[in-house]
Amino acid sequence: MRWFGATLVFLAELSLLFSLAWWPLAALDGPLSWALAVALPVAVAVFWGTFLSPKARRPLGRIPTIVARTLILLAALPLYAVLGAPILFGVHAVAVVAGTVITAARPLPA
């Protein structure tokens, strides 16, 4: 069951990166939109890999990781709302909540 939760969190992370790339392309014009479409997902992915991933180089600890991970993943919800994507909004919300609850209850071994 814990692998199911980890898979949901991973899919929510991919969904977050997708929303961070899609939003600037839809909301802005010109080269800035393309620059942000590349820079935002890369910056979040680097931060995630450094501090929040299961094999992070500088882990924050169990509780701070859960809190930070959940808050960052929830950042995609307003982006999906602004983009007018209610299905992606709902699927992402379910993946974040269910994945976080499952992994917090039964964390993966280090």
Rank of each mutant, 00 (worst) to 15 (best):
71 L>W: 03
105 A>M: 14
34 W>T: 03
88 L>K: 03
100 T>M: 11
2 R>D: 13
86 P>D: 06
97 V>E: 05
25 L>G: 01
9 V>G: 09
97 V>N: 03
3 W>Q: 15
99 G>F: 08
30 G>N: 07
51 F>H: 10
43 A>E: 00
82 V>I: 10
45 A>S: 11
70 T>F: 13
69 R>I: 05
86 P>I: 05
75 A>Q: 04
9 V>A: 15
105 A>I: 10
6 A>P: 08
31 P>E: 14
80 Y>K: 08
97 V>M: 06
43 A>K: 00
65 T>C: 12
2 R>T: 15
8 L>H: 09
64 P>I: 10
19 S>Y: 09
5 G>T: 12
15 S>R: 07
21 A>K: 01
13 E>I: 10
90 G>Y: 02
74 L>Y: 06
59 P>E: 04
18 F>A: 14
45 A>D: 06
36 L>E: 10
18 F>I: 10
57 R>H: 07
56 A>Y: 02
87 I>Q: 12
91 V>Y: 00
52 L>V: 06
90 G>M: 02
38 V>H: 05
41 P>I: 00
17 L>Q: 04
49 G>P: 02
59 P>G: 01
84 G>N: 09
58 R>E: 08
42 V>W: 00
28 L>I: 08
42 V>S: 00
21 A>C: 08
37 A>H: 01
50 T>L: 14
70 T>G: 10
75 A>N: 03
9 V>N: 13
56 A>Q: 01
84 G>S: 09
62 R>T: 15
47 F>Y: 15
94 V>A: 14
16 L>W: 01
46 V>M: 05
99 G>K: 05
23 W>P: 03
63 I>R: 11
27 A>D: 03
31 P>L: 15
59 P>N: 03
24 P>M: 13
95 A>V: 03
74 L>N: 06
51 F>E: 11
